[in-house]
């Protein structure tokens, strides 16, 4: 039996996340995925921005970087360019990744940098007190939208796919075993891998929207999603208002850091 404690900075525990916060489940799945890939702790770099999700980098015993708001992908790109052999994992949230760092996200996807980006989507800004995020669904209550936002939320997977990521998937915290497999597949993809993980915020999103206790909220997750493979066989009316999970797009293409090294080698040969 795997003891994930060896990957943790035990002095930081118990962590600061609220009771029932889905981010902790993602942390467990990420550690099990890294363990199953047999990566050493020195080969993995975890980079994060600002927000609840971004706190996770502080709890893991890898090389970690807790960066400025919205910029983890920029820092991570730098790491990957300098040390292409490292496995660079970016943990970001829906606010951090899609609004403050939205431009970094689409350009990292466009370049196909060899990063694994886990976007933990809890549909709200949790750390600052429950403001509406770019992913808050229509009609869902937040502190800045007491009657619910009237802006259409981002479908981050379609956004990143359109921007050119070579691997796009979506998981939910209620399915930790599937989530672990998706993380493994994302890390194994050489190019930019984007994995959106639907997480829960019982403290703000759940409380404002009367979703019951954390257990009620996580058990309800399953109602809003359909597996992408199953969805292909269902009529469109059955998919209304549902999110697709599983691997949504996988099309390998040249990775940025590797292409860069190749180009250097070519230019060096020409100069000689």
């Amino acid at each position: 039996m795997l003891d994930i404690q060896k990957y943790l900075r035990l002095e930081m525990f118990p962590h600061m996340l609220c009771p029932g916060c889905g981010h902790g489940i993602v942390l467990g799945a990420l550690l099990r995925a890294i363990h199953s890939l047999k990566l050493s702790q020195d080969e993995v770099v975890v980079v994060s921005g600002i927000g609840c999700s971004s706190r996770l980098s502080g709890y893991v015993d890898f090389d970690t970087l807790h960066t400025t708001h919205g910029r983890p992908l920029a820092f991570a790109t730098g790491i990957k360019m300098a040390r292409p052999e490292l496995t660079v994992i970016v943990i970001t949230g829906d606010g951090d990744g899609l609004s403050i760092g939205g431009n970094h996200l689409i350009h990292a996807a466009r370049r196909n940098v060899g990063l694994t980006c886990l976007l933990l989507n809890n549909e709200i800004y949790g750390m600052t007190g429950g403001q509406a995020a770019p992913t808050t669904p229509l009609g869902k209550i937040s502190t800045t939208g007491p009657t619910g936002p009237f802006e259409t939320p981002f479908d981050s997977c379609r956004l990143v796919e359109a921007a050119g990521a070579s691997f796009v998937a979506r998981g939910i915290t209620y399915e930790p075993a599937t989530l672990e497999k998706l993380i493994v597949a994302a890390i194994q993809n050489p190019g930019f891998s984007f994995l959106e993980i639907i997480s829960d915020c019982p403290e703000f999103f759940g409380r404002f929207n009367r979703m019951g206790n954390p257990a009620d909220q996580i058990l309800a997750q399953k109602q809003n999603v359909v597996d992408a493979k199953t969805a292909a066989t269902l009529p469109p009316e059955r998919l209304k208002g549902k999110m697709l999970t599983g691997i949504l797009h996988h099309e390998p293409r040249p990775e940025y850091a590797a292409s860069y090294q190749e180009s250097i080698a070519q230019m060096g040969a020409q100069a000689r």
């Binding site: 039996m1 118990p14 902790g24 489940i25």
Partner: peptide
């Protein structure tokens, strides 16, 4: 293993 995998606080281990 559901309890271990779904514990957000990593507080449960099944040996």
């Amino acid at each position: 293993m559901l309890c271990e995998w779904l514990c957000p606080d990593l507080a449960v281990s099944v040996h």
